[in-house]
Amino acid sequence: MKIAILLSAGRHPVSGAAVLPRLEAQAIRLAAGLGQHIGLHAGPEAAVVAEALGQGLAHIQHAALPEEADPVPALATCLAALAPDLVLAGRRGQGGAETGIVPYAVADRLGYPLIPDIIAAAPGEEAGTLHLDQSLGRGARRRVTIRGPVVATVHPDAPASFAYAYGQARRGVIEPVVGALAPHPAPVPAVEERPYRRRPKLVKGAPAGSSAAERLKAATGEAGPASSGRLLVRPDPDEAAREILAHLRRIGVLAAPRDPR
C-alpha cells in the first residue's frame, strides 16, 4: 500500500519554533504500520518539514512554491502523479501559514472521498479497501470501510508519534519535485475572518449554585438534556426529518415555525 502524508510548516504553540505539527507526526506513525509512505510538502522552504525525517519518514517530496501561492494545485498535481491509496493529513493547522482546509480542498480537486478524524488505519479484507477508525469524541469510535484512494485527516487521539531520531533525520531524503509547477495565487477565502474571541460555554439546564456533582449529573446524567433525547431505530425518513427539525428548534438553531394562519 502506498501512503502520502501532507506535511505543513507548523509552529510550536509555546515557543513559536518551526516544528512538524503533532498530528502530522502521528499520521506518519499510522502510515508506518500500513506500508510504503512518503511525505509531501508544498511551500517555499523544505527545511521546515525536515523534522519529519527523524520521526519515521524516510522520503519527502518538496514542491517549491512562492510564499503566498496556493499549495492545493501543486499538491493535487503531485498526488495525481504519486497515485497513493491513502492520503493522510492533520485535521487542523498548528500555528503556521497552513490550514485545516487544505485536505478538503485537495480531496475535492482530486475527487477523492475524505474521512475526517481517524485514529487507526488497517487494510481491509478485500484488496484495495481500508478500515479507518474515526474518533467521534468522548471515546466513541466508528469504523469506516472504504475503497481507496481516499484522503483522511488524523485526530489527536491517534497513537503518539515516534520519537525524533537525529540519525534517521540525517539519512532522510528531501527530493524536489521536478517539472515547473505553475504558482497559483492564494484563493481569496469565501468566509469572513474575525479575530478569535472566547465564548463562554453554556451548559443548558445546569442548576446554578448547586454542587459540581449535581451540575455534572445534570449535564450528562438522567436528569439533564442528555437524557431527553429519543432513540429512533430505522425511522421513517419524514419522521426522522421532523425529529431533527424539532431538536434544532429546541436548542435554538432554527427559528420556531411560522404560525400557519
Partner: peptide, 13 residues
C-alpha cells in the same frame, strides 16, 4: 537507542 533508533522510553519522548 535515542539518536539512531528513536526508541526512548515512551514517557520520556
Amino acid at each position: 537507542q535515542t539518536l539512531e533508533r528513536g526508541s526512548l522510553p515512551e514517557k520520556a519522548v
